[in-house]
Each structure stands twice: as C-alpha cells, then as structure tokens.
Design a protein around this nucleic acid. Structure first.
Lengths: 343, 343
DNA sequence: CTGTTAGCGCGTTCAT
DNA sequence: ATGAACGCGCTAACAG
C-alpha cells in the first residue's frame, strides 16, 4: 500500500474472491456458520491485501467502541502507575482498550475529560477524583446512557456508583495509634482537600485514635494543603513555629512527609528523636529518606485489576440490574525507623 | 434521556425545526455560511434535546479521528509524566485527544499497542521506545498510510522519522569530565540496553571524556542492567567486589544511582569521600538521598510541548512534503554534594 | 444561505 | 453456508 492509496475493505476482499461482503465480515469475526475453508481463504487473503478493520464503521454499526475511559488526577505517582498497569492488563485480556487522561487535580479538567470520553463513546468509565471536585454531575450523562462508571481510591460518597478503595479510616487509626503507643501525645496531621474520602476518612481515623487514647484533638495541629513536595516544606515551617513543638507528624501522603522531614532536619530537628514521622502510600521515597518512613502500603496493581474486573463484569451483564456495591481492599502498616522512639 | 433511549441525532433536531440535517450539521460545526439566527436556534435546540455528536459517524465520514496515539515505556516516572502533561496541553488546545499506552519496556507490547493505535485510526503517533525494541517495522504501516510518527527521548536512528531528544553524548561527556576534574580516575558507568540512543550515546560520551583526559576505558567498569531500583542494589554488590574499588560512579538514571548508593552506604562505603556519584534525569529522589545526587536536568514538559507542536504542524500540512528533522533540546548539569570531593 | 443526495465501511436482518 | 439489501449518523458535493 502506498501513500494516499485507498484502504482495502471487506468489499475489496469479497470482489477478489467473488463472494459477498457479508461472508467476509462473518469470516473475519469468526462467526460459526461459515465454511472452514472459505474462512481460511478469506483470512489469508485479508492479510495479503493488508486489510485493516475500520473501527469507526464497526463501532457505528455495533454502537459500542470496546474502549474504556480512565480519568485520574495525575499519572506520575508510583501508586497510580501501578493501578493503570493493573487496569490495562485486565482490560486488554478482555479485548478492551484504554483511553487515559489526567485531571491535574482540577474539576474543570475532569469535566472536560469526561465530555471527551462521552463524545468518544467509551463503553465504560473508571475514575479517581480530583481534589476540588464538589459534585459528580458530569458523570450523570454516562449513567443515563447506561455506561458503567466505577470509582476507585478517590471515590464519591454516593450509592449510585460502585467503588473500590481501602479502609482509610482504619489505616489512619492504626497509624495514629502506633504513634501514640510510641509515646506521642501531640501529633500533627497533614492532609488535603476534605472533599475527598481518602483525606476526610484519614482525618476521622486520626481523630478517633486520639479520642480512644484520651488525647485531645487540636484544630491547630491539622495542616491542610495539597500534599505536594513544596507544601511539605511549608508545613515544616509551620511546625517549626509551633510552641511547644509537637512530638509526631502523620502526613496523608509520603511525598509531603518526606519534604517536610527534609526541611525539619535542615533546621536542626533530629528525627526520630525529636519528632516521630509517618506517611501514607509506601512510595519508593520512603526507603530513601533517613530515617526510613513508616507508612501504609496498599497495592495499586491489585486495585486496578479489581476495578477493571468489576467493569468487565458489568459490561458482560449490561441487561441485568447491577446493584452498586463497594469493594474494600487490604492494606498493611509498615513500621520503619521514622516512627520508632529510640530508647 | 432515560436508560436505553435512542440518542438524538442531527435528524431529530432537523425534524423538530423543520430544516435539513445538513444545515444542522453545518451549524453545529460552526460553518461560516449559515444564518446567525438559525445557528443560534439549532445550538440551543441541540442542547435542549441532549444532543451528543457521534464521533464514529463523523470520523467514518471524515476519515480522521482527531486522536493522537502515545506509546511510552512506562507512565510512572516524573519525567514521562511531565512529557505527557506537555503533550496533552498542546494537543487539547488544538482539538486533539490523546490515546495513551505503555509498552512496559517490551517490544512485544509495543507492537501490540501500535496495532491497537492503527485499528483505532489515530491521526498521528508519538513514541518513546522500549528497551528491547530492535526494529521499527511496526511503525511502517503508519508511514504507508501517511500517518505522522514522531519519536521523542528514546528515538530510533533512522532518517525517516522526526525525532526530539537531548544531546545525550554531550551531557554524559560533561558529567564524566566533571567527575574527572574532581579527581576521579576509575569511573564505573551503569547503563541499560545499548539499543537505545539515550544509553548508547551516554556511554559514548563517557568514553570520549575518558579519552580526552588520557584515562583508559575499561570494559570491566561498565555495568549494563535495566536501571531499576533492584538493579542498583545488584550493581552495588558488583562494585563492592571490584579490587581495587573504583573512585566514582556515573549511572544513566537516578533511580538506579540512588539504590546503588544506599547499598554501598549500608556496606560502609562513605559517600562522597570514598566514591563520587552522578545520575541522570533530576528525579525528585536526587534531593532526598544523602548526599544529594549530581544529575542532568532536562524538562519533560517542554519536550512534550515541542513534540506535540511538531505533530500539529505535520497534521496541518499533510499535503506538503515534510522532511524528517530532529530537534535537540537543552539540558543542564546540576552539581550536588555526591560528586564534590571533600577537601 | 439552505436543501438534496450520496456514500464512508461495516454488521445484521431476512432470505435462499 | 452464503447473499442482497439496508441503515448506523454524519459530512461533502452539488444545486439552487
């Protein structure tokens, strides 16, 4: 085939073999009621002629695309990349392709992405929400069209959609209880937008652990930012101004925890002697920072697989009623030197 | 609109307003030759009726998708995520959507991804190659169909395709020369598949710097692995067995450098006193490891923008002849404590 | 400025 | 097991 040449179609194949396009179409999609030999011949000829199925025509006719949309806040985290790898594997195995986009943590872009997905007629949509998403009206058009929408990790508290996540409340409770057991009494908590379950649940778990251990919750010990590296440095400066100094920090992600630790160290704070530290996510950074950071590990790859399988299951049984149900995955607390009080 | 209900089409709108579908189509795509008022009415009615353009039909008719395919080795690096953000911005601004997939560093998946892109009829393809890709035959079908293919960062030495990258030879030369200037005479170089320009060019730059400084190149000082974190630990063990010990290490990426440093430190090697260190990419890790890692910084976001603009330019002038030309972007050497000999 | 007509390539009836 | 005919929804070509 040369530049500008016409694509070969099933009609070209049909003409060459002096049969009908319908038979070619059936043979190429492995329809049962077609002669073994003619099928073989058709497939062979198609390959020879460099035939390439036109997905537009096929999709138009079938009214489905075999494409699943994926909207995530950002692509550049170890966690998210694992999730995507897991999603891709499962969907590819089921003959679906993935359309990925990032909201860059803004609702505006998330809405725009969702509309793109709609126009591109995805068969299903998987979403992890941006920081500032206040409502999910932009996903209603999917529901109305019976296109499954599944939330993972950053979900929305609403029964209409299936959701996959971990028990952030319990994980935060455990991590806080651990810090308390190590002797901490004034624990700073750094977190992000309380619109997101992952952060509000962690804050709630932190509060409950304090309460269960007869420690008073202090608003002044909660720092809310965007959990970026820069925010971690600023948080350190805020902490340095606290009088008296707190005796522990629990950050809702590792990146922020690490940069916070760095700035504190630069200012002469000894870790973990002066201050215990804990993060969340088990980012590779946690094993590089000194002291190594205590954190919560949960497997993104598995979350991706589970979410994708859920999607496949819904697509396979579209006619049946699909009650939205939530899947809660496992996590583990990994204790490292940053949260161990030296004797 | 309710579940299962038929989508409204331009014919529905036309019927309701008692005009032709052609006019509706023109109005919705903002065609110039259509009455201001009817246009306004059509747009309003379309919105009211919940009209959604059917991209399959449109694409089928136009023989173009406004989708650009993107194949990268992995999504989970800071660098690649920046590249993607840059690409997305430029392409979205030009009304293109992005179809992302990762090859996971294998040629097999890269080929499979390319075929998916072909079937999904992308208008253009942007690629950064996997480790073990030995040829680029899988991109020829694109060229034959006059679909632009652009390589970035991990490019292929072939004139047919435009390529965007940095001068890896020069960067490696500078970093090696810097280590030599600090007094190093036996420098280990850790790198990956020599099939990829980014690694073969860096090795070549390293060799040239040795030569220009009258240092003998030793095959035994070159470690080839996959530059993963695990590979870094193993490389450290290899280095520990070298007698005498080398006096510097230049790793072709930061991740591998950092884990290598960690294992060396655990084994009692003092950095930078016993061994100088340098990496490549300016990953956030470089500022966390102690001592902070000397590295090469080059901006992924900019590379993404440049590559995407190149793509847009080619798509805009498809009829004209487009000579493949290469764009070489800037980089900078960032010297940190890991490569500074203490006096 | 607007309408008529045709066809993009495929999958799916309903025949035989 | 195969074929004829239609239509998915849209846009481009041609008229007027």
């Amino acid at each position: 085939m040369t530049v500008g040449a016409k694509e070969t179609t099933i009609y070209d194949i049909a003409a060459k073999l002096d049969i009908s396009a319908a038979t070619v179409s059936r043979a190429l999609k492995d329809h049962p009621r077609v002669n073994k030999n003619t099928k073989k011949l058709i497939v062979k000829t198609a390959a020879e002629m460099g035939y390439l199925s036109n997905s537009f025509a096929s999709n138009l006719r079938k009214k489905s695309s075999n494409i699943i949309g994926l909207i995530v806040p950002r692509l550049n985290s170890n966690f998210m990349s694992d999730v995507i790898a897991g999603i891709e594997k499962v969907l590819n195995n089921n003959n679906y392709n993935v359309f990925i986009s990032q909201s860059l943590e803004t609702m505006t872009k998330e809405i725009s992405n969702a509309n793109d997905m709609l126009v591109n007629r995805v068969d299903g949509l998987m979403v992890s929400l941006a920081y500032d998403t206040t409502n999910i009206n932009h996903f209603e058009p999917f529901v109305k069209r019976n296109i499954p929408v599944i939330f993972f990790d950053r979900v929305f508290e609403q029964d209409d959609y299936p959701q996959i996540y971990i028990d952030n409340f319990k994980a935060a409770y455990e991590i806080t209880a651990h810090l308390i057991k190590q002797g901490s009494k004034r624990i700073v908590h750094i977190t992000a937008s309380q619109l997101r379950n992952v952060y509000s649940d962690r804050l709630a778990g932190y509060k409950k652990a304090l309460e269960d251990n007869n420690l008073k919750f202090e608003e002044a010990l909660v720092i809310i930012n965007n959990l970026s590296s820069e925010a971690g440095h600023e948080a350190a400066n805020q902490i340095l101004k606290m009088a008296p100094l707190p005796d522990a920090v629990f950050s809702a992600n590792d990146i922020c925890a690490v940069s916070c630790m760095q700035t504190l160290k630069k200012n002469g704070i000894r870790l973990p002697d002066d201050l215990l530290f804990a993060g969340f996510n088990n980012d590779p950074l946690t094993c590089v920072i000194e002291p190594n950071l205590t954190t919560i590990n949960y497997k993104g790859y598995e979350m991706g697989e589970v979410a994708a399988k859920q999607m496949i299951s819904r697509l396979m049984n579209k006619d049946e009623f699909q009650p939205a149900h939530n899947l809660i995955l496992k996590y583990e607390l990994i204790v490292r030197e940053s949260s161990l009080r030296n004797k």
